[in-house]
Amino acid sequence: MSPAELIVRSDGPILRLWLSNPGRRNAITWSMYDGLLGIRDVVADDPSIRVVVLRGAGGEAFAAGTDIRQFGDFRTGQDGVDYEHRVGEVLTSLLGIRVPVVAVVDGPAVGAGLAIAACCDLVVATPDAVFGAPVARTLGNTLPPLVLARLQQRLGAGRTMALLLTARLLPATEAETAGFVTKIVDAEALEEYVEDLLLTIRSNAPLTLASLKEIERRVLAEGANAAADDVLAAVYGSRDFRAGVAGFLEHQPVEWEGH
């Protein structure tokens, strides 16, 4: 059986990632977490990357949480604190990726898999996708503030607590209604839809996309009065903005440079 790993493939302006843990529904190991932690720097160091797509390998799941075998060595409450801090660092890193991140969910996205999907900007799901963190029924552990806050932002506070307190799984249709899932796509049409979506994203102005992500981060942290003049100035002072205005007035398409 192949080892658990984060598979990373560069495809021109697209960085493609697969969570891969065969036979364990892509449950996430420490090495896979470490791989995810490094993606922000990979994107930051390569201005040609316009979009990241993350999915589960093998078609059996997006990710069925953390690989539980890794909890066997836990002996104290501090072990759990250290674990949650480690995962929190990964999630914060994912949220800090400068380009849009698209999650493609086919099957379960539960526990840490749900948290990772929640840290992506867009979520495309198949009809059999399910979402949840049923820890109250399974492991008897809990969720840290970062994950709870992100779920509340994406699902709503009431729905999040109902989901967690009942330890049930949310079907894709409910997740779409809540706004967590961007689009439900039948399996046979999934690849074409995803590729069209990636083409649309990478055709847009990269500075605009990056600025929207940065401003959203600040609004979520500080509210509507968050300071963002530096971001606004960088976008309005860019060559891309000048090219965009000229192209609009001249009815010509614009080749975005990201500068």
Rank of each mutant, 00 (worst) to 15 (best):
F248E: 08
V42C: 02
A64N: 11
L6Y: 01
N21K: 01
G223L: 08
G111H: 02
A205E: 13
G111R: 02
G59N: 09
E192I: 07
L198C: 07
P171C: 04
P22G: 07
L232Y: 13
R239K: 13
V104D: 00
T142H: 12
N204F: 10
E255M: 10
G59V: 06
D79C: 06
Q78D: 13
I184M: 03
E89A: 14
V147M: 07
G88Q: 02
V99M: 04
L164M: 08
S2L: 14
L249V: 05
D34W: 12
V245N: 03
D79K: 09
T182G: 07
G113T: 04
G56N: 01
D230V: 04
H251E: 14
V99H: 00
T160G: 08
E216S: 14
A117Q: 03
V90K: 03
G96N: 10
I49D: 01
G38Y: 09
L94K: 00
M1Y: 14
A157F: 08
T142G: 09
E255K: 11
Q252M: 10
V8H: 05
G23L: 09
E195H: 10
A44Q: 10
M1A: 14
G72R: 15
D34A: 15
F74V: 04
L143P: 02
L190M: 12
G156C: 06
E191T: 12
L164K: 03
D128L: 08
P100Y: 05
Q70M: 13
D82R: 15
G88K: 06
A187G: 10
D46L: 10
L164P: 01
Q153H: 15
D196I: 05
G59Y: 03
V147P: 03
P13N: 13
C120N: 05
D106M: 09
L169M: 13
G12E: 11
D73L: 14
D106N: 12
A162R: 12
L249S: 03
